[in-house]
């Protein structure tokens, strides 16, 4: 039913997010200026955007997300959108982890990310992890729209609680997320996760089995890492695993429906191991 599924439905919201940070990347078409320009780079509310590097030649323009104040707090509604137009290359990182904190009022904070990549354009979206502090609830919604031929490397890391949350409160916060990806009008990935206190079964053996970190690296038209690993193991075991290779954790590379789209999915005891699983999938030892 093409009509229903290509009508890129936006998430239902009671009200629009208050603060929307925006990035637009376009190719620099001036003579002798091959590269990428950023005609729109506007922070909003607690999210500031910093230009790290101009996009010269094949190198991407680089932008960092900077948390200008403690956020997101419960009740916050923040959003960031990035659009990469045909031929442009953009890399977005963040300077620190995003820590979700309980706000003055009960209820979740909302964080919406909307990424659009045109044919022949490249977006690398590689922020630091999202960390759910005890008592917080963050609703993270990511909507990615790819034209045919768009290239993407998207990383998402979720950490359930800081060390402090576990030692003092004995529990993390809650992270509810949805990641929806369309490629050339076709839905190729749609997944929700609900982790942390209040989410049924989240720390049980079907979901995280007591692990505190999970994440994924989604690539479309690009390898997981550069340079390309010689041989990406289907299943990366962790070092020091006893007996038959720690079935309860590790990383797995999944081929998604759609063209040249893969998802590296990882479950780990902490953020450090998680990052290693997502950045060195070829080197499990």
């Amino acid at each position: 039913m093409a009509r229903a599924l290509t009508a890129a439905a936006a998430p239902v919201r009671g009200e629009l997010p208050v603060s929307v940070a925006r990035i637009v990347a376009v190719p620099d078409t001036r003579e002798d200026h091959a590269g990428t320009l950023l005609p729109v780079l506007s922070g909003a509310g607690p999210l500031a955007l910093r230009r790290l590097r101009a996009g010269r030649g094949p190198a991407p323009a680089e932008v960092a997300l900077v948390g200008a104040m403690a956020a997101p707090l419960g009740g916050d509604r923040i959003a960031v959108t990035a659009r990469v137009e045909a031929g442009a290359r953009l890399r977005v990182t963040s300077v620190a982890a995003t820590v979700s904190l309980p706000g003055p009022q009960p209820g979740p904070a909302w964080y919406d990310v909307e990424l659009t990549v045109a044919a022949g354009a490249t977006l690398e979206w590689l922020p630091e992890p999202v960390v759910a502090a005890a008592g917080s609830h963050l609703q993270l919604t990511t909507l990615i729209t790819l034209e045919a031929g768009a290239r993407l490397r998207y990383r998402e890391e979720q950490i359930l609680g800081r060390q402090h949350d576990w030692t003092v409160h004995g529990r993390p916060g809650r992270l509810t997320s949805r990641l929806t990806v369309r490629q050339a009008g076709r839905l190729i990935l749609d997944q929700q996760s609900d982790l942390g206190p209040g989410a049924p079964g989240w720390d049980g053996p079907a979901v995280l089995a007591g692990h505190r970190a999970t994440g994924q690296l989604l690539t479309v038209g690009l390898p997981f890492t550069e340079p390309v690993p010689a041989a990406l193991p289907v299943l990366a075991a962790l070092p020091g695993e006893r007996e038959s290779p720690g079935e309860g954790q590790g990383a797995v590379a999944l081929t998604l429906p759609g063209a040249d789209a893969r998802l590296l999915l990882a479950v780990a005891p902490d953020g450090l191991v998680l990052r290693r699983l997502l950045t060195q999938p070829a080197d499990p030892s």
């Binding site: 439905a9 997944q191 929700q192 996760s193 053996p205 979901v207 797995v252």
Partner: peptide, 22 residues
């Protein structure tokens, strides 16, 4: 009502995906 699959649950469990591939 909306003729759109978006409202349908998409809940996933990382370990179930990992287990299935293993």
């Amino acid at each position: 009502r909306r003729q759109d699959a978006w409202p349908l649950p998409a809940a996933s469990a990382p370990l179930l995906d990992l287990f299935a591939e293993r």
